[in-house]
Simulated assay, not measured.
Amino acid sequence: MANDQWEWSDALYDLHGYSPREIPATTGALLHHKHPDDRERAAGVFAAVVQDGGTYSCYHRIVDRNKRVLSVVSVGRTVLDPDGRPAEIEGYYIDLTDARRDETEADVRDALSRKAQAGPLIDQAKGMIMLAEGCTADAAFERLRWCSQDTNRKVADVARALVECVAESGFRSDVVSQVLGRLLEEAREGQVDLGRQRSSV
């Protein structure tokens, strides 16, 4: 984002009911599609991150061009310029519509848990890591990939474990680190046990 210019992914256009680059990607376009009951709160989160920087996560509803109401979580971070001032914001949306039945904040954890059964697990896990560690989407995926390699598990399996644990205990930065650390520790313990079994044969 620079001078109110955004770069929307094709998926974000599709989420709002448009073909890629069908409309200009602006702050006004984003706010226009916020649900009227959520618009002021979402705008406040956006204004705060623009002014103060840092990471953000905001559950809200959007209304696409076909008047369909969608439940989403937006996750992202502010990128600073060399002088330490907010220069741009990068992030993405997680579509929770299929998992949502009630529109209350208290149900977000249950929604994430249900979404974990069939939804974009890797995107959700990336969003949690971005929020916890203040990193980019690419860096968050690298974190998942490294954990996948070190534990000899698929990236999706690592993502599933992270999403389910956070859904059970609630989101906190330390929970994300603890889950990834525990996966690595369990993998190392498994390698030690396997080595002992081989040495005893």
Results as ranks from 00 to 15, higher is better:
33 H>C: 04
90 E>W: 09
195 G>R: 13
191 Q>I: 03
80 L>R: 08
32 H>G: 01
63 V>C: 04
52 D>Q: 14
87 A>H: 06
164 E>L: 15
87 A>S: 09
58 C>T: 00
31 L>I: 15
97 T>C: 03
166 V>F: 01
154 K>V: 13
198 R>L: 12
69 V>F: 02
152 N>S: 07
14 D>N: 14
46 F>W: 07
182 R>P: 01
196 R>D: 15
157 D>R: 11
195 G>E: 08
7 E>A: 11
48 A>I: 00
67 K>Q: 12
128 M>A: 05
96 L>S: 04
157 D>L: 11
89 I>Y: 00
24 P>F: 08
85 R>S: 07
76 G>T: 01
145 R>P: 03
21 R>H: 13
185 E>C: 10
158 V>D: 02
124 Q>W: 06
23 I>D: 00
109 R>C: 11
186 E>G: 07
37 D>M: 10
101 R>G: 05
83 D>A: 11
130 M>T: 07
67 K>D: 14
160 R>C: 05
121 L>Y: 00
67 K>T: 11
21 R>K: 14
166 V>C: 04
56 Y>G: 02
185 E>Q: 15
102 D>T: 14
25 A>P: 04
26 T>W: 07
34 K>D: 15
143 R>W: 05
185 E>G: 04
23 I>H: 09
90 E>C: 03
200 S>V: 08
1 M>T: 08
181 G>N: 15
121 L>G: 01
172 R>Y: 07
111 A>N: 12
111 A>F: 03
46 F>N: 09
84 G>Q: 09
29 A>V: 02
152 N>T: 07
28 G>A: 07
40 E>D: 13
34 K>L: 09
99 A>W: 02
78 T>V: 13
40 E>L: 12
29 A>D: 08
107 D>K: 08
84 G>N: 13
163 V>T: 06
30 L>E: 04
133 E>K: 13
135 C>K: 08
130 M>W: 05
85 R>D: 08
129 I>E: 07
6 W>Y: 15
103 E>P: 01
56 Y>W: 15
111 A>Q: 01
124 Q>F: 11
6 W>C: 09
82 P>K: 11
145 R>L: 12
152 N>E: 04
14 D>Y: 06
156 A>F: 05
182 R>L: 15
24 P>Y: 03
67 K>A: 13
3 N>P: 01
177 S>Y: 00
63 V>T: 10
90 E>P: 02
64 D>K: 11
167 A>H: 03
122 I>F: 00
199 S>N: 10
109 R>E: 13
134 G>I: 08
22 E>L: 13
71 S>L: 02
2 A>F: 13
41 R>G: 00
196 R>A: 14
171 F>C: 04
15 L>E: 11
150 D>T: 06
161 A>R: 03
197 Q>C: 08
52 D>C: 14
186 E>K: 10
160 R>E: 14
86 P>N: 10
67 K>N: 10
63 V>M: 05
112 L>S: 05
39 R>K: 15
53 G>A: 02
83 D>G: 02
118 A>V: 02
88 E>F: 03
126 K>I: 14
174 D>H: 12
167 A>L: 02
192 V>P: 07
61 R>E: 13
60 H>S: 12
80 L>M: 14
25 A>F: 06
69 V>C: 06
123 D>C: 03
32 H>N: 07
137 A>Y: 11
142 E>H: 09
88 E>A: 12
77 R>A: 09
199 S>F: 10
